[in-house]
């Protein structure tokens, strides 16, 4: 059966002057799934998201939400979506309830509809007790919950989350993940950006790895890991000046797919560890290269990321909770 498509992105590009923030992006999001845009800071995730929520016009290409173009039918799209910004987009002087009341008016709800929905949402995100306190008294996690309630207020078909757990403590993160899964269970389509690999791995049904404004890989976390083909053997080598020699010695050996030097050793992708390990040990012996530590594991999402982008994801913008 054909799955219903919620979002269609077709050859999307966005340039700021000479800087190409997003180049030739194409993907689609199925209705009812959690779709992740994974990439380091400055990769183009947020730009893509802002185009989808109608706040930016693409330089070329198109994006549509349930068949409605984000530029020509922006107002229709805005009626279908909810948005949770990356910053704590909170007015510190308003109470939680007043935030939701303001948004109710902007979505043109009647007073009765608004009151009912606001009560439901406050209960959903567990903010009932703090609803009438000014937001400046909220903790980071509480602000995030209010953010999510605000995103859900319009009763959207698609919810957009920009870095939903950036800077949150572990407990709050797990809490947010729980909400997102619950929203999916209610039939919502969720599109989120993240630069946390574990978040993408645990939460997303499918994801696009974006780097330098381009899609490097697309699929479910499992598909992406399987597609790498083979498991990974990581060596820690005592004498780091031997790493290069070892790398050359292992290249083009049978059962070894790729070899990549790391800071203190090698990451070796192998077809089967039974065949590869004797070759690795024999090569080390022959070259007189002392191995300090051997680790063997199935591909993880960070291996996928490195394989497609040639580098590790770095969380440089991570900030502590205020």
């Amino acid at each position: 059966m054909e799955r219903a498509v919620a979002i269609e992105v077709n050859r999307l590009s966005k340039a700021y002057g000479a800087h190409q923030a997003v180049s030739d992006l194409s993907f689609h999001v199925y209705a009812g799934e959690i779709f992740g845009l994974l990439g380091p800071n400055g990769a183009g995730k947020s730009t893509t998201l802002r185009i989808l929520i109608t706040l930016l016009h693409p330089t070329s290409g198109t994006a549509s939400v349930f068949g409605h173009d984000t530029v020509r039918e922006a107002d229709t799209v805005r009626r279908l979506i909810g948005y949770v910004p990356q910053e704590r987009a909170i007015d510190r002087f308003l109470t939680g309830r007043e935030h939701l009341q303001l948004l109710s008016a902007l979505y043109h709800l009647t007073k009765e509809e608004a009151a009912k929905r606001i009560d439901e949402l406050l209960k959903l995100v567990d903010l009932e007790a703090q609803a009438d306190r000014p937001a400046k008294t909220y903790s980071g996690g509480m602000k995030r919950k209010l953010d999510i309630a605000c995103g859900l207020l319009p009763d959207p078909k698609v919810l957009f989350l920009d870095e939903p757990t950036l800077g949150l403590d572990v407990q709050s993160r797990l809490r947010i993940w729980e909400y997102v899964r619950m929203l999916k269970a209610r039939g919502l389509t969720v599109v989120m950006t993240t630069n946390y690999l574990d978040e993408a791995d645990q939460l997303c049904d499918r994801l696009a790895i974006i780097d330098g404004g381009r899609i490097k890989a697309l699929g479910s976390p499992t598909e992406l890991k399987v597609a790498l083909g083979g498991d990974i053997v990581s060596l820690t080598i005592k004498e780091t000046d031997r790493i290069a020699g070892m790398e050359a010695g292992l290249a083009n050996q049978p059962a070894i797919k790729t070899v990549r030097a790391t800071r203190n050793g090698l990451d070796i992708r192998v077809e089967s560890p039974e065949k590869a390990l004797p070759i690795i040990l024999e090569t080390a012996n022959r070259l007189g290269c002392g191995i300090e530590f051997i680790e063997y594991h199935r591909p993880r999402l960070d291996d996928v990321f490195i394989a497609h982008t040639g580098r590790r994801i770095t969380d440089t913008a991570e900030q502590p909770v205020e």
């Binding site: 009626r79 704590r88 902007l106």
Partner: peptide, 18 residues
């Protein structure tokens, strides 16, 4: 604009001039 509140308002189906 700086704290993202404006984006939240602008992603709602309101007239830009409001």
């Amino acid at each position: 604009k700086e704290n993202g509140f404006l984006e939240r308002l602008m992603s709602a189906p309101i007239r830009r001039s409001s």
